[in-house]
């Protein structure tokens, strides 16, 4: 027989977007597509992450990272963007902060660029189309 104690506590689990101390992980999203930026933002916010900044190209991404530092825990970085591509932006961010945690976002068929990014110091990558599970798994594996 069910009793009231069978009701699950909905707040029992710490959302994945929060550190063990309870503060939200701070994320910078760098992507030239308004759609992808919104999609990543929605997935991360729903899990308690704090999207502290967005940038529409690599150059702006590097500037935003420097502005936010050290109050930024993770960057999601698109590869193909105008003005400065994601691999060059990654390089600049790692030059500035060798411990930066950057996850590359890539369309299929850019394996060579993804490999290059991992060699430079990207911590992980996600191949589009993005879905909630894929994004959260990769991002959390880098942060925890």
């Amino acid at each position: 027989m069910k009793t009231t104690s069978d009701f699950p506590s909905i707040n029992e689990r710490t959302p994945d977007g929060q550190s063990n101390g309870g503060s939200a992980f701070k994320v910078l999203v760098v992507d030239d597509s308004m759609f992808v930026t919104k999609q990543i933002g929605q997935i991360l916010s729903s899990e308690g992450f704090n999207v502290v900044g967005t940038a529409a190209d690599g150059l702006e991404g590097v500037e935003k990272y420097k502005e936010l530092y050290p109050n930024v825990d993770l960057v999601t970085m698109d590869i193909t963007m105008p003005r400065m591509d994601g691999v060059s932006a990654l390089e600049k961010i790692i030059e500035f902060d060798k411990d930066a945690k950057v996850v590359m976002i890539s369309a299929l068929g850019k394996q060579d660029l993804v490999k290059k990014a991992l060699l430079i110091g990207a911590k992980n990558y996600i191949i589009k189309p993005l879905d909630r599970k894929k994004v959260l798994e990769r991002v959390i594996s880098v942060l925890k």
Binding site: S33, F35, L108, G109, K128, P129
Partner: peptide, 12 residues
């Protein structure tokens, strides 16, 4: 932007 991204994923 959404349709552009759809085309990007398909062509890639």
């Amino acid at each position: 932007a959404t349709i552009t991204e759809l085309a990007n994923m398909i062509t890639a």
